[in-house]
Design a protein around this nucleic acid. Structure first.
Length: 274
DNA sequence: CCGACAACCTGTGAGC
DNA sequence: TGCTCACAGGTTGTCG
């Protein structure tokens, strides 16, 4: 489900709901999602720790405790929210962190169970986050920096935008949207982008992501923020999921192709190479 | 190094 | 109504 705008929305809403609270217990119904730790190990390590902060790096949610860090990745269908503790949680509630006196739980809902929840020492957490690339909304990347980073990359630019070690946080929706804004053919080999195209990409990435964030992200199917809000950016998609519709810029027809096993949407008329 | 593909999972919607 | 298939916001690993 979530790319940077959705994860950032989740973090901002979660923060006031959980920071300062003490984790009283933890459980999971899908041990595979916990990485190396068993359910019992996770529970014993987080028990009694106060939540110090909730932040984001790329698509990871970083929950800092007193003696370690919980890293949550929502993957496709994950969602975090706080609600009253249920005696028999719905089957899609795959994990929970019981808070304070036990009346409320920080739930992890994840129908597809592809998400991950890991508990790490701060050193381990930093190491795993360090492989991520630029933060699109915090680091200003110049066309020259981008061009240099893409120098040896022959793959098409759109799938390259999904590489989290370049920019962290761009996913399949915004990769297509960014290419439309920058007027770049998503099939262009990354190392063949002109200087002007790199400049436009560097503008388009923060522009698209920050507008999406302002709208609370995009809601496809069931995406919902921790407070239960739906994002609104899906109303402003220029190309994503709009095959055969007309381009807002030139009236051309929007196409769908598959790159690296993911759908790509673009205008066949105004997103030309060069 | 690169691209293609499978795998990890469940749910939904379209088409027949 | 019920079946099958394609597809879904992500990432990782294998193979040629």
């Amino acid at each position: 489900m979530p790319e940077l705008p959705e994860v950032e929305t989740a973090v901002r809403e979660l923060r006031p709901l959980v920071v300062g609270r003490v984790i009283r217990g933890a459980w999971s119904t899908v041990p595979r999602q916990l990485g190396r730790l068993t359910i019992r190990q996770l529970a014993s390590r987080v028990r009694g720790q106060r939540i110090g902060s909730v932040t984001r790096r790329g698509k990871y949610i970083v929950i800092e405790l007193e003696r370690g860090i919980v890293l949550v990745h929502l993957r496709m269908t994950g969602r975090l929210f706080v609600s009253p503790t249920e005696a028999k949680p719905h089957v899609h509630l795959r994990a929970g962190f019981v808070l304070d006196d036990g009346h409320e739980t920080l739930y992890f809902k994840d129908p597809r169970t592809l998400g991950t929840i890991g508990y790490y020492s701060s050193g381990e957490a930093i190491d795993s986050l360090n492989v991520l690339g630029w933060e699109p909304l915090e680091e200003s990347v110049t066309g020259a920096m981008l061009r240099d980073a893409l120098r040896k990359r022959t793959q098409a630019i759109k799938p390259v935008l999904l590489d989290q070690s370049l920019w962290a946080g761009i996913g399949n929706i915004y990769a297509s949207e960014v290419c439309w804004v920058a007027q770049i053919d998503p099939r262009t080999p990354a190392n063949r982008l002109s200087a002007a195209q790199c400049d436009r990409l560097c503008q388009a990435v923060p522009e698209v992501l920050s507008l999406a964030l302002e709208r609370g992200g995009s809601s496809l199917r069931d995406f919902m923020s921790p407070e239960g809000n739906y994002g609104a950016y899906q109303k402003e998609f220029r190309v994503y999921d709009r095959v055969d519709e007309h381009c807002d810029r030139c009236g051309g027809v929007i196409k769908r192709i598959v790159q690296a096993q993911r759908s790509t949407y673009f205008c066949g008329t105004c997103q030309k190479r060069r």
